[in-house]
């Protein structure tokens, strides 16, 4: 390798396609097939972009990850959740409620400010942000704040076209009667992947249809 290349690599200006595992530290998502596709799981820090419709299972996908993030005693912050969060469900999933902070700011500017403060503080492990329009510069700012505080910020928003944001991971979710169809749109140090099924029948049997149930329900409905 030439001296120039070596120098560029050392300054992290050069990225090589075969070094997959070095991009970020992964935390297991709790779903085996997802861990395999994401080379270990969700990123432990940085910005995670999730494009999803509301209510198809996006939070259930994240719960094992959030629970692990929180286990070191740091806070989990929910910023402008779409409705009243329900303690029963979070508690049953192993989230420690005394380490949960819910912020309901009035404007999206305040929401971004709160997110940045939480991320920088170093006492939050994960911040969930719902439906905040994000510009490129703001996303970069959140990403830097998250790296500074070793926290992850998860942006939950509707599927939308537009400029790709500087994120560690961007996935798109679609509802499926046995779980979720997940397609990786962008992954730092990895390739986008074709849609695949994240099977939730084992973890959430009550919120999945088996094939027979599905047809029975269809018949009833018609």
């Amino acid at each position: 390798m030439s001296a120039l290349l070596e120098q560029l690599t050392r300054r992290q200006l050069l990225w090589q396609g075969n070094s997959q595992h070095t991009a970020y530290q992964a935390v297991s998502s709790g779903y085996a097939e997802l861990d395999q596709q994401l080379a270990g799981g969700f990123p432990a820090s940085g910005l995670i972009d999730i494009q999803t419709e509301q209510g198809i299972g996006e939070l259930r996908l994240l719960l094992p990850y959030l629970q692990q993030q929180q286990s070191a005693g740091r806070l989990l912050v929910l910023i402008s959740p779409p409705a009243e969060p329900c303690a029963d469900m979070l508690c049953a999933a192993g989230i420690v409620l005394s380490q949960l902070v819910i912020i309901t700011p009035k404007t999206s500017k305040d929401a971004l400010w709160a997110a940045e403060q939480c991320l920088q503080s170093g006492c939050c492990a994960a911040v969930l942000l719902w439906q905040i329009p994000l510009k490129l510069a703001q996303a970069r700012r959140l990403q830097l704040a998250a790296e500074q505080g070793a926290a992850s910020v998860i942006l939950l928003r509707r599927p939308q076209q537009g400029l790709s944001l500087p994120v560690n991971l961007s996935v798109k979710l679609q509802g499926h009667c046995q779980g979720l169809l997940l397609s990786v749109q962008k992954r730092k140090g990895g390739w986008p992947a074709a849609p695949f099924l994240v099977d939730m029948q084992h973890r959430w049997p009550g919120l999945c249809f088996t094939t027979e149930q599905h047809w029975q329900a269809r018949r009833k409905a018609s």
């Binding site: 806070l75 303690a87 409620l97 949960l100 819910i102 305040d110 709160a114 503080s121 170093g122 006492c123």
Partner: peptide, 25 residues
């Protein structure tokens, strides 16, 4: 990293967003 405790963070958020905008569960 960062020398902010959870209580300090909560005070900071309450000061800007208002007392009732920050809550637990």
């Amino acid at each position: 990293p960062g020398a902010v405790s959870p209580l300090q963070l909560v005070s900071l958020l309450q000061a800007r967003l208002g007392y009732h905008s920050v809550s637990g569960l």
